[in-house]
């Protein structure tokens, strides 16, 4: 019997046991959230930004104790003092969580491991809210501790006229600031430009609109409907009534929701060079 053994065609070798194609299950969203949270802490700059939440809360409330008088030691004063550094640090944290994927180009790996950018961006958004709320709880707890310390030092009863509702408004105002930073990160996708953009927004644009409202009567009527920055910061230290929520909601459409949609659309397509 003669058998002819044909050499195996070169392009179709038998696949050995290792490196066989396999089907994999989609990455669960909860895992993406945990990974993205880790990425907010795991660089030196990320770590110190997070740490500075606690550090500046201690410094700001310490300053009230050291340089203020007995009458200044109230929880309202302390939380207002702590709010100043928070309003700067928290939006920067939100900005960097988005822009670093482009500025540091780590998105090349992130978006290759998860080829659905919308899920990654949503995980980052969820973490922005998480971090914002957690940071404010830490900061306001430090403020409460300082209030007790100050009251004990002056030998007075601690003053707690700030209600839980007031506190939740302060947290909300900060989270909205972070959301604005997050939006800028999506739209601009460059760390320095987005941070500068945030400061221009929070220190220049809002005030310019207020100035416009004081000089132009027609604008005074609509200022609160279009001035998101004013409405957002209003929540820090004012009594909030139903109309304030309406102002906030309407002005956020123009300043937050619409640019957020445009920014997300752009970030889904933007090449990571």
């Amino acid at each position: 019997m003669t058998t002819t053994t044909l050499p195996r065609p070169a392009t179709e070798p038998v696949t050995p046991a290792r490196h066989r194609p396999r089907t994999t299950r989609p990455i669960p969203f909860g895992r993406l959230v945990r990974v993205e949270l880790r990425k907010m802490f795991d660089t030196r700059s990320g770590f110190w930004l997070m740490a500075s939440v606690a550090v500046t809360a201690v410094l700001a409330s310490g300053a009230v104790l050291m340089f203020g008088s007995e009458a200044d030691v109230t929880y309202a004063n302390l939380s207002a003092a702590i709010g100043v550094p928070m309003a700067i640090i928290l939006p920067v944290i939100a900005i960097l969580s988005v822009t670093s994927e482009w500025s540091q180009r780590s998105g090349l790996t992130t978006f290759t491991l998860v080829p659905h950018r919308g899920r990654v961006l949503l995980a980052k958004a969820v973490n922005t809210v998480h971090v914002g709320v957690a940071a404010m709880v830490v900061a306001l707890t430090i403020g409460a501790g300082t209030n007790l310390l100050g009251a004990a030092a002056y030998g007075i009863d601690p003053v707690w006229e700030t209600s839980l509702t007031d506190l939740s408004h302060i947290v909300l105002a900060n989270v909205l600031g972070m959301a604005f930073g997050f939006m800028l990160g999506l739209v601009i996708r460059s760390s320095p430009a987005a941070i500068v953009g945030y400061f221009v927004y929070s220190f220049v644009i809002g005030n310019l609109l207020v100035l416009l409202a004081t000089s132009q009567e027609w604008f005074a009527d609509i200022n609160r409907w279009v001035n998101f920055q004013y409405n957002q910061t209003y929540f820090f230290d004012q009594q909030i009534v139903a109309k304030d929520w309406a102002y906030l909601g309407v002005s956020s459409l123009l300043w937050l929701v619409l640019p957020l949609v445009i920014g997300a659309w752009a970030a889904m397509r933007a090449e990571v060079k």
Binding site: R22, T24, T43, S100, R105, S106, L108, T109, P115
Partner: peptide, 23 residues
């Protein structure tokens, strides 16, 4: 884009310098 967990199926290296320098 249809792969469930692409990292377990395809190993990719496009640009070794594209990493967060601070990690």
């Amino acid at each position: 884009g249809d792969l469930g967990n692409p990292g377990l199926e395809v190993g990719v290296l496009l640009d070794a310098s594209a990493q967060h320098a601070g990690r």
